[in-house]
Amino acid sequence: MTQSEPEVGLEPDRPNAARMFDYYLGGKDNFAADRAAAEMVLQVAPWMPEAARQGRELIARTVRHLVEEKGIRQILDLGSGLPTRDNVHEIAHRIDPEVRVVYVDNDPVVCSHGRALLADSKAVSVLQADLRHPEQVLAHPEIGGAIDFGSPVAVLMMFVLHLVPDEQGPQRIVASYRDALAPGSYLALSHAGTDAHPELMARISAIYQRANSPFVPRSHADIARFFGNLVLEPPGLVNMWPYAEPPATDDPEVAGTGYSGVGRKP
């Protein structure tokens, strides 16, 4: 997940959005401050672990769709977060071991865990950089050595843009990545939404104020703008982007908390 700047250290006494998400998933890469803040969220949103689990399933469906059905062979995962079960490269490599994957995150803990996991992989790399500076990310030599932007590439921005406040220009940031893509490329994103439960989302946002990243859910209309002139894959921008599978949940509380979609650059 994104945070303030790459040089920021571990900060175990300050809640961290990536480590809180790890806690929701039942992981062990979190500290007491993360668990305390996450438990406060769970008091108002007890379904958060289920939403986090479904989020991982959403990523798996999306990657399988892009690699198996659309022929994508290079993936740029922005704001990748802490490694967990069934990471993007593992899903992709079950289909084609030659798929190149670059994870980008500016959390040093996320990157150190990722590099340890991928120590023997030649098709996968981890870059510590801030997705909010697309010019720097796109010009980074490690990106250039792994990703050919003259050919189709899939950019993933899963569960990260709602950690970028409006004053930092998230629409401009995403547009910069869209502009760098060749025709036939894809942008996949998921984002917390405000339409169904605005008061609940406001309470969650207030808890995240003490963490290293804000929590800024947005409306369906604002999230749709991130795709610009990309053509949305069916079924469009929906609660949990399903591909050849039924919706992940019938729970109205979980179902109204976010949107996801995949867009193709014509």
Rank of each mutant, 00 (worst) to 15 (best):
A196T: 05
A129S: 07
R85N: 15
V174Q: 06
H191K: 03
A206E: 09
Q168H: 09
V63T: 10
P170H: 02
E39K: 13
M40F: 08
E253Y: 10
Q209T: 13
S80H: 00
P183V: 04
P12S: 10
A123L: 07
P97Y: 07
V174T: 14
R132Q: 08
W241R: 03
A146Y: 08
E98N: 08
R178V: 11
W241S: 00
R35Q: 12
G150Q: 11
L156Q: 02
G55I: 05
V104W: 01
I72S: 01
V174D: 07
D34I: 01
P214F: 01
Q171W: 14
H133W: 03
L127P: 00
V216S: 09
G193C: 07
P141I: 04
E39F: 10
S4N: 13
A146T: 08
H197L: 15
V104Y: 01
V216L: 09
G193K: 03
V153P: 00
E135R: 15
M157L: 09
R115V: 15
G145S: 12
A38I: 02
G9Y: 08
G145K: 14
L78S: 03
A129L: 01
G263M: 10
D13E: 15
F21N: 01
G81N: 12
E90L: 02
A244Y: 06
G9T: 10
F21E: 01
I204L: 09
F21I: 00
R56T: 08
R210C: 13
D22L: 04
T84E: 08
V102M: 15
L161N: 00
E11Y: 15
I173T: 14
L200H: 06
V44H: 06
F159D: 12
V99S: 09
S176H: 09
V63M: 11
R85S: 13
Q171H: 14
V99N: 02
F21W: 04
G228C: 06
R53P: 02
V216A: 11
E39G: 08
V88D: 10
Y243K: 08
M240T: 05
P217C: 06
H220V: 02
M1K: 01
N87S: 07
P214A: 01
D86H: 12
D166F: 05
P252D: 06
A224W: 04
G114I: 13
D77L: 06
H191S: 06
P214V: 04
Q3Y: 14
D120G: 11
P15F: 07
N87L: 07
Q136S: 14
S4P: 09
V160D: 01
H89R: 10
G184R: 03
V262M: 09
P214E: 02
E11N: 15
K265E: 03
R100M: 02
Q74N: 09
L200W: 05
P97T: 12
R19W: 12
L232P: 12
A36S: 13
L138T: 03
S4W: 10
L232Y: 11
A248T: 12
E69V: 07
E98D: 08
L232H: 10
P97G: 08
F226P: 04
A175Y: 05
M201Q: 15
E199R: 14
S121I: 03
A60Q: 14
S219P: 02
E167D: 15
G236Y: 06
V101Q: 06
G150K: 13
L10S: 11
Q168N: 14
H113K: 11
F159H: 14
G9V: 10
R19H: 10
R132G: 01
P12Y: 06
Y177E: 02
E57F: 03
D86N: 14
